[in-house]
């Protein structure tokens, strides 16, 4: 009986820790959609790019993945800015097909570039703390995953504060709510869109670093995370940053419970099943306002 409770709590803990990172992946996608009305189909590939950059830094210089965070985040932000400025931004005002093909294409270029550069075999980083755990009331916490979760909490809180308290945050929300009116207030909405895309890609790259210690990476890992980000975003309501937190945690827990009690081989499927159930019951997402 006691063992059963502990195993349940253990599964929930594992699910919440991973779910926090899923939330961060989803927030990046959701923010971009909220401001630009563009679904970035390459979102997961940017995450994969963050993973491989960390892997490469580790192999080349022995830099610890957690210490690589500033480099990877800055590189991701710069790449996001340029990508939107040159590739996605010009398509965003045109018909939907244009930007969908563009972002799908960017994703294909990234994943095939990774395949070319790193090969198809699964790779991972092994550090001294990769398998380290600590115990709390009989439940064991993975050290790297707990650290990743803590970083996620800090980053999401900082992002939330930025959106609500700073000039840039107000400009981002104004652009999301009414782009023409934002321009009339003197806001350069094209720059705001570049900044938001940069933030989205930086968050995806950061999630890539945080997941690296607990995951094998292959060049196609991106498509899995694009799908997860999409699930998180839809669960939380498109464009709803706070909702994405709930969506991420729910996805993490659903996967973890499914893996513990049903079959660990179908881990990814349980998240999608939970997703379908939520959509059947609440088509606007968990926190979405219905469009009645």
């Amino acid at each position: 009986m006691v063992e059963g409770v502990i195993s349940l709590v253990q599964s929930l803990v594992n699910g919440l820790l991973t779910g926090g990172i899923y939330a961060m992946v989803g927030i990046g996608l959701s923010l971009v959609f909220g401001v630009m009305r563009v679904i970035n189909f390459a979102h997961g590939e940017f995450l994969a790019l963050g993973m491989y950059l960390t892997l490469w830094l580790f192999r080349a210089t022995g830099l610890d993945p957690f210490l690589a965070i500033p480099i990877v985040v800055l590189a991701g932000g710069a790449l996001g800015w340029v990508t939107n400025r040159v590739l996605v931004g010009p398509m965003a005002s045109g018909p939907e097909k244009g930007y969908i093909l563009m972002t799908v294409g960017i994703g294909l270029v990234i994943s095939n570039g990774l395949l070319l550069g790193f090969g198809a075999h699964p790779q991972s980083i092994y550090t001294s703390y990769s398998t380290a755990t600590f115990q709390l009331a009989g439940v064991s916490f993975s050290l790297p995953l707990t650290l990743s979760f803590a970083i996620t909490v800090v980053v999401i809180a900082a992002l939330y504060g930025m959106l609500n308290r700073t000039e840039l945050g107000r400009a981002i929300r104004a652009t999301a709510q009414n782009p023409a009116a934002a321009e009339l207030q003197g806001i350069d909405t094209q720059r705001v869109r570049n900044a938001v895309f940069a933030i989205g890609v930086a968050l995806a790259s950061l999630a890539g670093v945080l997941l690296l210690p607990v995951l094998y990476v292959i060049p196609t890992v991106g498509s899995v995370f694009t799908r997860k980000a999409f699930v998180v975003t839809v669960l939380g309501g498109m464009g709803n940053v706070l909702g994405a937190i709930g969506g991420g945690l729910l996805l993490g827990v659903a996967e973890s419970l499914g893996a513990t009690y049903l079959s660990s081989g179908y881990r990814d499927a349980f998240g999608l099943i939970a997703f379908l159930l939520v959509l059947l019951l609440r088509p606007a997402g968990l926190f979405g306002r219905s469009q009645a």
């Binding site: 107000r170 400009a171 929300r173 709510q177 009116a181 009339l184 207030q185």
Partner: peptide, 25 residues
């Protein structure tokens, strides 16, 4: 400055945030 037809406020911002956005420059 233009005050557009139909006001075009930022509906999910507070009154004060709308005003602060007006002095973004």
């Amino acid at each position: 400055a233009l005050i557009p037809e139909g006001r075009q406020l930022f509906p999910d911002m507070t009154v004060e945030e709308n005003l602060l956005t007006g002095s973004y420059l």
